[in-house]
Write a protein that binds this DNA or RNA. Structure first.
Lengths: 208, 208
DNA sequence: CCTCATGTAGACAGGTCTGTCTACACTGTC
DNA sequence: GACAGTGTAGACAGACCTGTCTACATGAGG
């Protein structure tokens, strides 16, 4: 079943152990320490593979970085959508109509509270890449685009300015994520600020 | 007049050319390319000093990084306050009362439009530092604190929730700055989103 | 049987990084 | 005139970086 020597057509859906271990390790180290701070040697050692194996799967660090971002995008979006919809499911019916953005706040709280939280991987990567960030910036922009769509799904399809509101909420989430990176006290303050912004956005006289 | 051999008491207020050149160069390169991507050698070459001179002024790169952040903080805050107050001066009287946060949008537009704009130096530095960011994160948090104060100064002192609103606007600005880093199209979108957020914040019925 | 993809183990090249070192020159004050 | 502070010029050490290389092992499909 795995045995198909070389299958052209739809690209590799067969997960190769070594490749997977490399990617998993890279994901962890890149996110925690930063990309430039993480050497290939370290990834190789931690993933338990050899250089040849590594370079056969990823011809350069740049390729690995892109694979990292792609994987991160898929995984994070899945997590985020799940967090949004479980928070939404927990809302009372009335609040769901009058304050539809509250799940964003809940998701942010959960995100910032993760033990290894270190901000948005895409923003961090672009920040680190500096002037040479152009290609990566496109990936980051697309990621934010999808975040916006996930948030927009909380709003009734008939809502006026649906996309605009969702986009504004995305920016608010980014701003909060940046500040949440500065420590625990900052994270708490960031959540407060995010609540203010989401409240204001979701306005209509919504009161506690 | 400069000649006082060694003056104890109030520490050096005399700006030494070489030191200043180093700092200026570091500021430029650190911001544009990132900190890790910028080697000491490059700074030395570009500043036109030698290694000994450099290391006499800054015993380590870490010291230079802190000096960079301090300098950047002072310079940027001055720029930002000036941008806010000139935008505010240009507002019609009525708007100034009803939409006091509009100058933040104007300042953001000016900021994102700068030729060398590359996001918030503090956020970028923390993002780059990764797990080892703890000391720098404090500096960044303090910076954001001052930004909030500068924004709060736009609001009437009697306004209810003045600090909260200013803080929310600060987060919004951060979110916009992050996204503005992703390219020109993203910068335009970030300004739109920021406008939505500031509008929503400003239109809140903050009653006494 | 034999080829080929995948894997292991580790040496190596060539570059860049931070930071130290020696040796010398200029200037103003004591 | 001695001294202390600041500057220049560039070699050097030791670490780490990315990426290439040789040599060998294994297992499955032609």
């Amino acid at each position: 079943m795995v045995g198909m020597t070389s299958d052209p057509g739809t690209a590799a859906s067969a997960p190769i152990p070594a490749r997977d271990r490399i990617l998993r390790t890279a994901q962890d180290l890149f996110y925690r320490q930063g990309i430039r701070a993480t050497g290939i040697d370290r990834i190789i050692a931690e993933a338990g593979v050899t250089k040849v194996t590594f370079y056969r799967h990823f011809p350069s660090k740049d390729v690995l970085i892109r694979a990292y971002l792609e994987r991160r995008h898929v995984a994070w979006m899945a997590w985020f959508r799940a967090a949004l919809s479980s928070a939404r499911a927990a809302q009372p019916e009335a609040e769901r109509r009058e304050a539809p953005l509250v799940p964003v706040l809940d998701a942010a709280r959960a995100w910032f509270g993760l033990a290894d939280f270190r901000g948005c991987a895409f923003a961090n990567t672009v920040a680190e890449a500096g002037e040479a960030a152009l290609p990566l910036a496109g990936i980051a922009a697309q990621h934010k685009h999808e975040v916006r769509d996930a948030i927009a799904a909380l709003l009734p399809p008939t809502a006026r300015g649906r996309a605009e509101i969702a986009w504004a909420a995305t920016l608010a989430l980014d701003g909060a994520a940046v500040n949440a990176q500065f420590g625990e006290a900052s994270a708490a303050a960031a959540l407060d600020g995010l609540r203010s912004l989401l409240d204001a956005l979701g306005s209509r006289p919504s009161l506690p």
